[in-house]
């Protein structure tokens, strides 16, 4: 096994005049939870589609577990599981039928498929709903079915495109727990999100994408440290102004010089600040 399970270099994808993915490099280490954070239309889905070989890049190369996807795509594809942003289940058949269908398509026998389904259904707490029609499940449950389907063939890496968008807080927390469990049992996770909180709390490492370009990369802690751990916020009637400092002492020192017409606040820097600083806007 190689250290970096996914290596992508110089990915470019154009749709007509629009460059949706613009020279993106991605390196995902074995066993980590890696997140791509970016606003709507930043190019997250397109990046996922390229990395999973659903779309072909206009430029650049992708290696999955050392396999070049332009030539060894069949072997490469066996290593990956995918949960797309839009759920891709057949809503007219039951949960069980969907899962077995996925197992068969991945080359498992009926018997293996059933066994694996029961294991995964147990961890996803789906056992009671196997005979429900997918169309009658809520969003959170559909996500869990999608997870079972995408994990049925023991992939090394699971791609999840905005897994928690549209879920309520409770389902989201549960999904986070499930994602962590999968990760602990050895699956590398690649997810995209536009929730800063999710990137900060769930991911080991993140890349921030905007307008098709990766504008920062690192652990959430590193990214925050790079900017400065402490934020000084000055507010008058206009937009608040931010300055960043390594320590609270430095920030306090700087606060002394702020004129009396401003209100001043000193707080911990968040990933949101990093994003704002890099792009000039919030996610």
């Amino acid at each position: 096994m190689v250290d970096d399970i996914i290596v992508a270099e110089g990915l470019v994808k154009r749709f007509g005049k629009l460059t949706a993915v613009d020279h993106v490099d991605v390196r995902i280490r074995n066993g980590e939870i890696f997140g791509i954070l970016g606003p709507n239309g930043a190019g997250k889905t397109t990046t996922v589609r390229l990395l999973t070989t659903m779309d072909l890049p206009d430029e650049g190369r992708i290696f999955i577990n050392g396999l070049d996807t332009s030539t060894q795509f069949v072997d490469a594809r066996r290593r990956i599981g995918i949960i797309q942003q839009q759920h891709s289940l057949d809503k007219d058949i039951s949960v069980r039928e969907n899962i077995i269908h996925h197992a068969l398509m991945q080359g498992l026998s009926l018997k293996e498929g059933r066994k694996r389904m029961m294991e995964l259904a147990e961890t996803m707490e789906l056992t009671d709903r196997l005979d429900t029609l997918v169309s009658s499940l809520s969003g959170g449950w559909k996500k869990r079915v999608s997870i079972v389907c995408s994990m049925i063939h023991h992939p090394d890496i699971l791609f999840m495109d905005e897994p928690t968008t549209g879920l309520d807080t409770q389902s989201r927390n549960l999904l986070w727990k499930l994602i962590r469990n999968l990760n602990h049992s050895g699956t590398t996770i690649f997810l995209t999100t536009h929730y800063i909180y999710e990137a900060e709390n769930l991911c080991d490492r993140i890349s921030i994408i905007d307008d098709g370009k990766i504008i920062a990369e690192g652990t959430p802690k590193e990214l925050i440290e790079e900017l400065g751990n402490v934020t000084l916020v000055r507010t008058d009637s206009d937009e608040p102004q931010f300055s960043y400092f390594r320590t609270r002492e430095e920030a306090k020192e700087a606060a002394k010089d702020v004129g009396g017409e401003f209100s001043v606040m000193i707080r911990k820097t968040t990933l949101e600040d990093v994003f704002l600083e890099l792009t000039g806007r919030t996610v």
Partner: peptide, 17 residues
């Protein structure tokens, strides 16, 4: 329907068949 409304056709193409 599989292509447009639930994007499962893309996944079908990816399976090792």
């Amino acid at each position: 329907i599989q292509r447009l409304f639930h994007t499962s056709f893309d996944e079908l193409v990816l399976c090792p068949m």
